[in-house]
Nucleic acid binder design. Structure first.
Lengths: 156, 156
DNA sequence: CAAGATTGAGGTGTCAATCTTG
DNA sequence: CAAGATTGACACCTCAATCTTG
């Protein structure tokens, strides 16, 4: 196959993602929910053992712009969605600890998010399509495995 | 199939895109090339008839954040990559007109971009994968058709 | 008044420099 | 000195006015 097919695949991947992402973000804003970055952080913390991660680990796992998680955490802490706590055994590290409020907001957000995902993406595909997508995209990217137990203070 | 497959497909799509995008952006920065937003604008103009578009049309076609194309255009104009020109027959509109310098930069950028796309994406897929991707993603998103000839001053 | 583009104010992202702890 | 996080300065994005032209 010629080289142009490679480029077509990328172009389709790139353009489709951006358009779908734009559409979802727009609706999220219209509903009045916090943006995806917030969801990303809350969900990442919720999945972590004891709902907490050190900032270094958190920024590694987040799927959006990860530079300077400090600023984003400031805002989330102001809103009561997480709290900071110095790590007792290594006082250089700081935990971001999900609050009950943060957990509830994440669940609330999901109710809308899942509908939007279905509306703009999954709903237009068959089960075969879903499987094929996961198989193909799995070739270019594999989710990193994180240890579920990060011990007292984690460690990246 | 259970609902979780729909979500898996989205999660894979979302995460893979962000990771690949991050990786490419990182390398682009390391090389010292302008970011993708710039490429996007230059390429969009290059494809347009006479290498020019009104700002309203340009912002519609661009595949990244499109709010306030004015600011981005300011920077590109400072760098000599495009020039502004009032549209003679409708003086409300303004053309963004690609310069020779802008065209050359776009071509120069492509030399690196295509290698990065191959390295982080296309190169790890078969021709079948490419075809399947285009077919599947085509279901959730179709490229808008723009008239090639936008007349004297275009019109969105 | 509506459409097209710009401006100003404020929010957010980014990088380098800094502070603290190991 | 190295690792983890924060801060300050600056670039950039976003939204609501604003200005101009039809």
């Amino acid at each position: 196959m010629s080289d142009s097919n490679h480029i077509d695949a990328w172009a389709t991947y790139f353009k489709s993602f951006n358009r779908i992402h734009q559409a979802i973000v727009e609706e999220i804003k219209a509903i009045g929910l916090p943006p995806m970055e917030v969801y990303d952080v809350l969900w990442t913390l919720e999945q972590a053992p004891e709902h907490r991660l050190r900032f270094a680990d958190l920024s590694e796992r987040v799927y959006l712009d990860r530079y300077n998680i400090t600023r984003l955490a400031d805002r989330l802490e102001e809103q009561g969605l997480l709290v900071r706590k110095r790590c007792p055994s290594d006082r250089r590290g700081v935990w971001a600890l999900l609050t009950k409020q943060g957990l509830e907001l994440r669940r609330e957000m999901w109710k809308s998010y899942k509908d939007l995902i279905h509306k703009h993406f999954s709903g237009q595909l068959t089960s075969e399509d879903h499987k094929d997508l996961v198989r193909i995209l799995g070739k270019v990217w594999k989710e990193k495995e994180y240890e579920k137990d990060v011990g007292d203070c984690g460690g990246s």
